[in-house]
Design a protein around this nucleic acid. Structure first.
Lengths: 215, 215
DNA sequence: GGCCTAGCATACTAACTAGTATGTTGACCA
DNA sequence: TGGTCAACATACTAGTTAGTATGCTAGGCC
């Protein structure tokens, strides 16, 4: 054996670039999610971390760069994992979309609903203020919409979604509905509003389904 | 004549409580609308005003109180004036809702759409952070929803809206759609998205209209 | 027409802000 | 095994923040 050739990085090492970066990103994401980007200071974030300000600025040149990294490395993957990937588990994408809504919003903790949707929060706060945020949020939303559209097209080919449906339009509308639901539930501070809002959404999904698969 | 008895307050007077308050509220509203509540400082607001910090704190004990006043005295009336009152001009409330959407969103300046909806902005930013904001935003949204419901009920009695429609549910859904539209247009930074989103919305409005009035 | 207070203006503070300057040390490699 | 540099830690700064303390004066009232 020549263990020195295929060296595995020691898990005990006290310095780890990637791990530190991830820690900062995760903590910062949570804080910004709850208090807004402008409502959180670098010191706030650093304090909740096991690291210090030196580490922070070693990883991110400015606070703005941290924000950008959060959109790219946290928000975008999270959104896909929550709202696009799970639909793949369903033969009928429309059922997948409905079930995902029920799970992610209907089944969420009231405390979490009060905080709303991470993407929407950051979008509403920072998109009009900063171009960098705007472009990245735009990208994330388009990933989301594009991902949905893929599933809808699949549904058209497998006979679940009507062929005459404009899948791009439908994907836009569905994302709008999800953001709108999050927003109104948060604004009204009423998780029960989800059920009220869901009925018309079900009707919409039924309206773009093929007759044979309507329930 | 005894002019000293029915004294009209001189319009030239340099000190005017209500006028000063209104000036502060209006300027503050605009700044907060564009930069967010946490993104605007009291000094920022005062600087854009013809007044000073002394005047500001004579009118509002804290910055938070200013925020509350903006919701109560600016946002709530503005929302009703923009999204509820105009519907009264139409015999068919569903047509009124559609036309109002087209005017307020479809016909808005792109620069304005980039900034989104004032209510939604403040709601998404401040509702989860502060209880005072939460309660007031909740109140404003309920005014909006309630106002819409009145028009929908009127539509039911005048034969424009189907009798079996849950007007509360419909009002909730419509407000959600408006907030969602604003949000997505802002997030995508694409005013054209309005037209994409409008088609399914038209379908929804048609679905709750009586057969005889459908277009 | 003088007085009194509401309606401000000015000057200040303590705490916080993003960012920097500089020092320290762990880990890898020859 | 010691040198080197990446990966941090510590200490600082200049500017900003909400809020205060205090002073001034316009204008209503008798």
């Amino acid at each position: 054996m020549r263990p020195h050739l295929r060296r595995v990085p020691s898990p005990k090492k006290t310095r780890n670039l990637e791990k530190s970066r991830k820690e900062i990103l995760d903590i910062a994401f949570g804080e910004i999610y709850r208090h807004g980007f402008q409502g959180v200071s670098v010191d706030d974030i650093v304090r909740k971390t096991s690291l210090t300000k030196g580490a922070f600025y070693h990883h991110f040149p400015t606070k703005l760069d941290l924000g950008y990294a959060i959109v790219d490395d946290v928000l975008a993957p999270l959104t896909l994992a929550r709202w696009v990937v799970p639909i793949g588990e369903y033969a009928d994408p429309l059922e997948g979309i409905l079930r995902t809504m029920e799970r992610n919003i209907g089944g969420a903790e009231p405390a979490l609903l009060r905080t709303g949707c991470p993407v929407n929060n950051l979008a509403q706060e920072m998109a009009p203020i900063d171009r960098g945020f705007r472009k990245r949020i735009q990208g994330t939303l388009n990933l989301w919409i594009g991902g949905l559209e893929v599933h809808l097209k699949r549904g058209q080919q497998t006979g679940f979604v009507r062929r005459d449906v404009d899948t791009g339009q439908a994907a836009h509308f569905i994302v709008m509905v999800i953001e709108g639901m999050y927003g109104l539930i948060k604004g009204l501070d009423d998780p029960e509003a989800f059920n009220t809002l869901l009925t018309p959404v079900k009707d919409y999904l039924r309206s773009i389904a093929t007759l044979s698969t309507r329930k």
